[in-house]
Design a protein around this nucleic acid. Structure first.
Lengths: 240, 240
DNA sequence: CGGCGAGTGGGTCAGATGACCCAGTCGCGC
DNA sequence: GCGCGACTGGGTCATCTGACCCACTCGCCG
């Protein structure tokens, strides 16, 4: 083994650890398996890291940055926001299908950090990172299709993260492409419903410019009655 | 230790195993930790189960049935489908908040079965079970609020499962109640948007009874053009 | 009511694993 | 060009873990 600066060695060990975890899970990522993957000797491990725990903690932190924006897809002409979102989600799904182990490894690392004393915060930060990525994607998608979001961006980002998580988890469990595609379409629909076109379509004459009661407010929380609202007629929960 | 029939011993060991897994994860669920939790001796373990693997396999299978319908909530008068769904989701969220370890254990067991040769099928069956529960909840919710679903039930059930998974995962990561509540509201909205009231509201005069192009079809897949559709105007992905 | 076998208890064993030690070696700075 | 110290290699050690063994006990059946 060539002589490497510690920093580089740490980097390689981290990469090897992720590979091993992808293949056999966190439990199977023993120090020996990791150095084996990296083509090193066991002593080098403890030269670079004080302990296996330290490596895993670093890895969890690292992984946050390693996540790329896979949702971003080149927009097409005349494409609606919903369509763009759906293609983005399908693209994400493709990356999951291509490398399911990678995705599994991510989930497992999150779980590891949630369960390990001292690392709980990292799981939260990881999700913070996901939301930031989601927010960026949502912003770009909206401006590319001439739309505006009707809710705070970070809120919608949280929803998108939940949707992608659910989507990935379900696919990992049963590998059902058809079902996953349908759920992706549903997710796109659901998110697009939280937007409005920026170019306000001409309002039909006579219709007052009512600010159409925020359709995305909680459906159960008692909304401060701006005007006393009588018991609403039996209707599905869709916005007025 | 009292003398127990094997069946009972197995049951107790399974319960103890789940408890241990909730506390310390699958990796920490060693045979010793399990028998300790159950108040038995190690030998009893191998008397009841051939191996730790056999117990875990059985546990994964068991867990499928153990899941209850927590989404079901008593309906209130004049409540919309969306409101009912949101309350159901919030109730689910409450169970997660009350026993996060339980939920974590479930996720971990799923992951274990996905990763263990011979148990992959169990993960799929587990999700099948989840979908069945979701479908039952959705049916009940719709009929209680006088609504009908506009998409096949099992499809919507898959969406609901994805949403609850994403919701739970996010909450487990950051324990942010506010965010989780908002996502629950979003999920309820999104699902309710896939329904329609059964009592058809009187159609405005002059508006033909057009079957308003299925709003829930995929937004990207080329829909067989019933009528040649020119490039759609730039609009958000929301249904016409 | 006596024996037999299902069930129990305590111990053992081999292998895996995290940690870490120490004698070397070899590249870099002087 | 050379010495020093950052790095490497090949061990060792204590501990944990799954598996399993065998002598014993005690409730039930005949």
């Amino acid at each position: 083994m060539a002589r490497l600066p510690v920093a580089e060695r740490r980097r390689r060990l981290l990469a090897a650890a992720f590979t091993v975890i992808s293949r056999v899970g966190v439990a199977g990522a023993t120090t020996r398996a990791i150095v084996d993957e990296a083509g090193m000797k066991l002593a080098s491990f403890h030269y670079a890291f004080a302990s296996r725990e330290e490596l895993l903690a670093e890895l969890v932190g690292d992984v946050i940055g390693r996540t790329e924006v896979v949702l971003a897809v080149p927009p097409r002409d005349g494409e609606s926001l919903g369509q763009l979102l759906e293609r983005g989600l399908l693209r994400y799904l493709d990356t999951v299908r291509e490398a399911p182990e990678r995705e599994r490894a991510m989930f497992e690392l999150t779980q590891y950090s949630m369960r390990t004393p001292g690392l709980e915060g990292l799981a939260a930060r990881q999700y913070e990172g996901y939301r930031a990525l989601a927010a960026a994607s949502l912003t770009k998608a909206a401006e590319r299709t001439g739309c505006a979001w009707q809710r705070p961006l970070d809120e919608l980002a949280a929803h998108l993260v939940a949707l992608t998580d659910g989507l990935a988890l379900a696919w990992l469990a049963d590998a059902d492409d058809t079902r996953a595609h349908r759920t992706a379409a549903f997710a796109a629909r659901a998110l697009a419903a939280e937007s409005r076109p920026l170019t306000v379509p001409p309002r039909p004459l006579g219709e007052p410019p009512r600010p159409l009661a925020d359709p995305s407010r909680s459906l159960t929380e008692p909304s401060r009655p701006l005007a006393p609202t009588p018991a609403p007629p039996t209707r599905p929960g869709e916005p007025a």
